[in-house]
Simulated assay, not measured.
Amino acid sequence: WQELLSTIRQTDAECWIVTDEVGLGIVPETRLGRFFRDVQGKINQLIAKEASEAYLVICGLAQQLK
């Protein structure tokens, strides 16, 4: 993910990144599932921090977060 952010910073092109929101569902039963959820959530936070705009889409409705 660090390479991805580095590449995006170096380009002038418009870039869209789409990820799943993993923190609003059930708590995974396994340790590996919880680890994945935590890492994916952290990556989403880092990407959103770098982005000029961020949206959460629920039921097809986009909510601008930033």
Rank of each mutant, 00 (worst) to 15 (best):
T19P: 04
T30M: 02
R37S: 05
G23T: 11
T19D: 02
I43M: 05
V27L: 15
Q45A: 13
T19F: 10
N44L: 10
I43C: 00
R34I: 01
K49W: 12
T30G: 03
R37C: 03
E29Y: 06
G23L: 05
T19M: 11
V18M: 04
Y55A: 03
S52P: 08
V39S: 00
I26E: 13
K42G: 01
R31W: 09
Q40C: 12
L32Q: 10
V39T: 06
E21G: 01
T30N: 01
Q45T: 10
K42V: 11
G25M: 08
R31I: 14
K49E: 11
K49L: 10
T19E: 03
V22A: 08
F35N: 07
I26H: 11
K49R: 14
T30P: 09
I47S: 10
A54E: 13
I17T: 09
G41I: 12
I17F: 12
P28C: 05
S52F: 10
G23H: 04
R31P: 03
E50M: 10
L24T: 12
K42I: 13
F36A: 12
V39D: 01
T30A: 03
E29L: 06
E29A: 07
F36L: 11
I47A: 12
V18Y: 08
A51F: 11
L24V: 11
E53I: 02
G25H: 09
L24D: 07
L32V: 15
E50S: 10
E21L: 01
I17V: 15
G41C: 08
E29G: 03
N44H: 14
D20C: 02
L32P: 00
G33A: 01
R37E: 03
T30D: 04
F35D: 15
K49Y: 13
